[in-house]
Computed example of a mutant assay.
Amino acid sequence: MRIILLRHGQSLGNVDELAYCRIPDHALPLTRRGEREAAAAGPRIKTLLDGTPAAVYVSPYVRTRSTLRGLALGPLAERVVAEPRLREQDWGNLQDPVQQEVLKHQRHAFGHFFFRLPNGESGADVDDRLAAFLGELENRMRQPDHPRTALVVSHGLTIRLLCRRLFGWSIELFESLSNLNTCEDRVLTHDGTRWHIDRPFPQWRDSPDGETQY
């Protein structure tokens, strides 16, 4: 079994944080650069698939669905499921710019995993919904009619937490990792016993508990 994780292309929210104050998070579009990133990622993902169709699970947000379209996978996307559990961490509805900055400082001091955003989610909440998704996905992938490869198009924090759950990483290690760049991928492979990742995540500090990604 294999899971290809892909972060969406650059979105308006990546270059203009005030966009979250006037546009719902789920509706933020890709920038022109994000569209180019998605188009450039298409051949790379096709090479990984090597002619074998994949089941595609995509966050229902505009930027993730646009990224998937930009890949232009054609028949290699055997089935496409818009999966709400793959959405980004919920920060509430339209955000106030002053409160947004305060919350970011509070979250950094408190810890990204357990800090609960007012009217939104904590990282732990995202982790919980991803646990349910991964349990179902692994069961589906064991069925003979399901492709052996799943492509997951999602968001930075969501992808980090998905790997935290799958590999059993500590909270301290999770909080020491950085998101993938836009349209960057990671490939997870199951050898029959356990999952492996092809490359580590970028890490901005050593994990305080000494845990590593391998």
Results as ranks from 00 to 15, higher is better:
2 R>F: 02
4 I>R: 10
4 I>Y: 04
5 L>P: 15
5 L>K: 02
5 L>E: 13
6 L>F: 09
8 H>M: 14
8 H>L: 13
9 G>Q: 12
11 S>F: 01
16 D>C: 05
17 E>A: 13
17 E>V: 13
20 Y>I: 00
21 C>G: 14
23 I>C: 15
33 R>S: 11
37 E>C: 10
40 A>S: 14
45 I>P: 07
47 T>S: 12
51 G>C: 09
52 T>P: 00
53 P>R: 12
53 P>D: 05
55 A>K: 10
58 V>F: 00
61 Y>P: 06
65 R>T: 13
68 L>C: 06
68 L>Y: 05
69 R>K: 12
69 R>P: 04
74 G>A: 09
75 P>A: 11
79 R>A: 14
79 R>N: 10
80 V>G: 03
86 L>F: 15
86 L>K: 03
88 E>Y: 02
88 E>G: 14
92 G>Y: 14
92 G>T: 00
92 G>A: 12
95 Q>E: 15
95 Q>W: 09
96 D>P: 06
98 V>Q: 07
102 V>K: 15
104 K>N: 14
106 Q>I: 07
108 H>V: 10
112 H>C: 01
115 F>I: 03
120 G>C: 08
121 E>Q: 13
128 D>Q: 08
129 R>M: 05
133 F>H: 01
135 G>F: 02
136 E>C: 09
137 L>V: 00
140 R>G: 05
141 M>L: 08
143 Q>D: 06
144 P>K: 00
147 P>F: 06
156 G>A: 01
157 L>V: 06
161 L>I: 05
162 L>M: 07
163 C>Y: 02
163 C>R: 03
164 R>T: 08
166 L>P: 08
168 G>A: 01
171 I>G: 11
171 I>V: 09
177 L>W: 07
177 L>T: 13
178 S>G: 09
181 N>V: 01
183 C>V: 05
183 C>Q: 13
185 D>H: 14
186 R>C: 12
186 R>D: 12
187 V>H: 01
188 L>C: 10
189 T>H: 06
194 R>K: 03
197 I>S: 10
202 P>T: 12
207 S>K: 10
209 D>G: 07
211 E>M: 13
212 T>M: 00
213 Q>E: 09
214 Y>A: 06
214 Y>Q: 04
